[in-house]
Amino acid sequence: MNEKKKANPIRKILESRLFSQIMPVGLLVILTVIFGIATKGRLTSAASLKIIVEQALVVATVSTGGAFIFASGNVSLSLGATTVLTATLSLLAYNKTGSIAVMFIVAIGLGVILMTVSALLSTALGVRVMYVTIVMMTLLSALQQAILGGSTVSLPYEVVQKLVKGGVMYIGFIVFFIVCVVLFHMTDIGRSLRFIGTNNLCAEQTGISKAKYLLIAFIIAGVGCGIGAILAIIRGGSVGTSTLPSLNMDCMLALVLGGMSIFGGSKSYVYSGVVGALTVVVLNQGLLMIGVDATIIQAIRGIAFLTLVTVSQVRPKGLPAPEG
């Protein structure tokens, strides 16, 4: 390999992939330290950290699955609505049968079915994923409202306790996360999706079928929604029309905060959702604890999201195309 010399070591570090992978973790640590100091240690107490992790689990799970869709350069807006409707129907299934196994099967099965419908609509009609998922988001939210009206549906307290004590939340997330890491980074699934996100046309001409891999991405995201729904049930004990209202936005924010490009492609990492979910919750909790109004927090999250999307559009200095 002919290597040209005169490397600027600082620039080399800044432009390296490793730096872009480590930076989100650094951001999480910095935010935790800043809010830890600002809240005089309340945020970093053991009890508070446990709450942060538990709160982050739902977002982390759903966004880990969603990372597969985002890697392909597509934006899904129905992850939140799918998770909430799935949670509602799986709880109703439990109430009907009294079986936890049925609840689990319904959650995962329904998550997969709903996401598969989105994928098929997009590929069959040739409509962009974003537009299809806008329709799905509206439709699924309306469906949940029609089913529940103003009421909520709950899981009996003793069942919740049993699941909490059994560590189902952590086990569910860890198993799903490990499977996703393997699929994303060690099989053709993740690589193909990233390549589609980089250049869709080139991917097709390299034999990578966009329709096939997009369907796989939605199925994995559907499993994520299903597991996310179970975690939401266990954490909240009940589901209503106001459950997890900003889940989709939280997932998107988590992915970009976790270092993933909103446009997918080469710089997509499956762990972005996890690091980002923790960052989102630390940001939310930290701001709440120092007394910032909830509306202002929403605005701050929106600004953070737009800033990160803007930054991710800036071409790194070392990457022009120096032809000839």
Binding site: T187, D188, R191, S192, R194, F195, T198, N199, L201, C202, A203, Q205, T206, G207, I208, G265, S266, L319, A321
Partner: peptide
């Protein structure tokens, strides 16, 4: 049509070898 310009050299070459 033939390259993922914003992907690495390795990712481009490896794309035919999954």
């Amino acid at each position: 049509e033939s390259l993922g310009l914003s992907a690495t050299i390795a990712e481009n070459i490896a794309s035919t070898g999954y």
